[in-house]
Structure formats: C-alpha cells, structure tokens
Design a protein around this nucleic acid. Structure first.
Length: 361
DNA sequence: AAGACGGGGTT
DNA sequence: AACCCAGTCTT
C-alpha cells in the first residue's frame, strides 16, 4: 500500500475515521441543531479570518440576529456595529443584502439549490459548497485555505494556489475526493485536518492519517507547499484624521459605501498638505478654538500601509451647527451609539475617552 | 488575470 | 517586519 495511489474512497475513509476521534465538533456553529443560517453566518465570518477570532463575533452576532428574518429587518448600522473589528466589511453588507433576498425571494427559508446559494452576494463556490454540504449533506467540494494546504502537500501541487490554473486543478482534485455520502463531514474533516494537523508551519505529520501517501511528506518537502506569491513592497499612504471635540462629543462621518472601511463611521479627514483649520471652516462650518497633534500610528492593510496623523481640535462653543447633517453625527464617547467603527477609529475614541475631559489646553 | 478588501496572530 | 488566514467581488 505504501507505493500504491490512495483511492478517493480510502482517502475519505481514513479522514473520516481520524475526524471521529480528533476533529472539532463543539464550535458554536457546530451544535447539533445548527441551522443553515448559522452555518452560513459562520462561513462568511471565517472567510480570511481564523476560528479563534471569529468565535466571540459569532456569538454576539447570533445573539442579536438569531435568524435570517431578524437580520434582514435589522439596520445596516446595527449589522456593521456587530462586525466592527472583523474586517472585510463588504462581508457584512453582503450578508445583510443576502438576508433580504432570502426574505423576499425565498420566503425566509435558506435556499437549497447550489445556483441559488451561489447567487447570494458574498457567497462564492467554496462557501456555497460549505453551506450545502454542512447544513444539508449535499455533495459539493470546498476549497479554502486549509483544504488548499492539505491538497497541495498530498499531491505535491506546485505553483501559487491563487493562480487560475493551480486553482482549477485543486478544485478538480477536491471534487474527485468528495464522497457522495458524508460530504459535509468530509469537508469539515478536511478543514479540521488543515487547521490542527496540516498546519502552515510545523505540521504534525506524525498525527496525520494520510501521511504515508502524502507526496510532500514522503519526499520530505512539506515546507515547500503551498507555494507563496512573490510579494511586492506595499505603498505607504498618509492621512490626517480630524478629532473634532466638543466636550465629550466627537464628530464622525460615514464613509462611502465602497472602498476601505466602506459604510463605517470615521473621523473627517484632510490631506497632509491641507490647512486643517481652513478645512474645518469651509467644509464643516466649524470654528476651531485649539488644536494639538497626537502621535502618528501606522495601520497595515493587505495592499498598502497607512500612516494616520490624528489631530485633536477643540471646537468653539458658539456656532454649533455642522454643515450637512446627513452622514455626520456627534458621537457621544460617554454614551456610545451602536455604530460600525473602523478599528483604528475605535482605538482612537477609546484613548480619547480616557483623556481628561473639559477645558484644558 | 489582477487588484481590492481589514485586522489580528505568529515568527 | 514579513507572512498568513474557513474568499469574493470588481475591473
């Protein structure tokens, strides 16, 4: 058997056997009566995000939006608030929109046809396969980071998995391996194996039920898979954030629906070369009484680095009106509204709240 | 086919 | 500081 090729049937038999003993079965979205809705929410949260990070968000989210109708009827701001800090906020907007589609087009019941699930915003091939297999036992493969790692190693697949040709090959392999019975368990087991055994660094091949037929393991090249993309140097951008203070209130603006922190609330910004006082007068109709710089902080994205230069500005007590109230709000740091805040904005507000209040400077 | 999209953890 | 993570959408 050592030299032969492992059949798909034997592959899944071994994997499921391993999963019965060693797999995780007590995650919050894996309860016995977990609905398609909770599987879906968890899968969306788990996109590009690790289990440990997701768990508290998932619990809070499900407590507030226990079913698809409550999510569909909720305010976008409320949904974003519960997503704040998770990142990739388009996921939350898509989740909300998809819930409304399920309410309006599917009678509030989660669809069970692959094409219908795939057409929901935010749901691609892998997530559609995950929900249908995990929640309904349908035979669809998945291809997330864990599965990619397992497959590239087991079959010694070279090339960066983000490349189209490599990805197609991996989908074909995943499809051939997926059993017609127990597809959900199989997919869960693949993800668990990737998360617990076939880890990116220092994989526990000694505990792997497939290692004797794993090409990378046999060749002693496990660390070479999956290949990584050659990375470019990230561009550095800079922005000045205006922390406009009026007593314990601070002015926030809603960001445009697309782009970084889309739909979230943040501080007004101005370019590094602009005059902040002038900017406040002309764009916001506010007179500045005092100002001082706060320490610069760097925020890193996948695609660029951002230097945030916070500038605290005290507003004159007279001339209270802010131009164009739509999309702007005086945020009470003592009694916070439930808004979605970008992570660095939330941090700045926390520091701000800790500052001595009142008429210093 | 390539780039955009967040934040946190690990090394 | 580099690298990665239970991907999907837009261009």
């Amino acid at each position: 058997m050592q030299d032969g090729v492992l059949s798909s049937k034997e592959f899944s038999r071994r994997l499921l056997q391993w999963h019965r003993c060693a797999g995780r079965k007590d995650l919050p979205w894996q309860r016995r009566n977990s609905s398609a809705y909770s599987v879906w929410v968890s899968e969306i949260m788990l996109q590009q995000t690790q289990v440990a990070t997701v768990i508290p968000y998932f619990k809070r989210f499900m407590a507030r939006f226990p079913d698809v109708l409550q999510l569909a009827d909720a305010d976008m701001d409320h949904v974003l608030h519960h997503w704040s800090g998770l990142g990739y906020y388009a996921r939350a907007r898509n989740l909300h929109r998809a819930a409304q589609i399920i309410r309006d087009d599917h009678g509030g019941l989660f669809p069970q046809l692959f094409e219908q699930v795939l057409s929901l915003p935010g749901v691609g091939r892998s997530t559609a396969g995950a929900v249908l297999s995990l929640a309904f036992g349908q035979r669809y493969p998945i291809l997330d980071g864990n599965v990619k790692r397992v497959l590239t190693r087991f079959f010694a697949v070279t090339g960066w998995p983000g490349e189209t040709s490599v990805q197609q090959r991996l989908w074909t392999i995943a499809d051939e391996l997926t059993p017609s019975r127990n597809a959900g368990l199989f997919n869960q087991a693949m993800m668990d194996l990737g998360a617990a055994v076939c880890t990116r660094r220092q994989p526990a091949c000694a505990n792997c039920p497939l290692s004797d037929h794993c090409r990378a393991h046999v060749e002693g090249s496990v660390a070479d898979y999956p290949e990584t993309r050659a990375r470019k140097r990230l561009p550095l951008k800079a922005v000045r954030m205006l922390l406009l203070r009026k007593r314990e209130m601070v002015l926030l603006e809603r960001r445009p629906p697309t782009g970084v922190w889309g739909g979230l609330w943040s501080f007004p910004e101005c370019g590094m070369n602009a005059d902040p006082v002038e900017h406040c007068a002309t764009r916001l109709g506010l007179k500045v009484a005092a100002l001082h710089n706060l320490p610069r902080r760097r925020h890193t994205f996948t695609h660029f680095n951002l230097d945030i230069h916070p500038l605290e500005l005290e507003i004159e007590n007279s001339a209270e009106s802010v131009m164009d109230g739509i999309g702007r709000v005086w945020y009470n740091t003592a009694k916070p509204d439930r808004l979605g805040l970008a992570a660095p904005v939330a941090r700045l507000i926390d520091e701000f709240r800790a500052l001595p209040k009142g008429d210093c400077e």
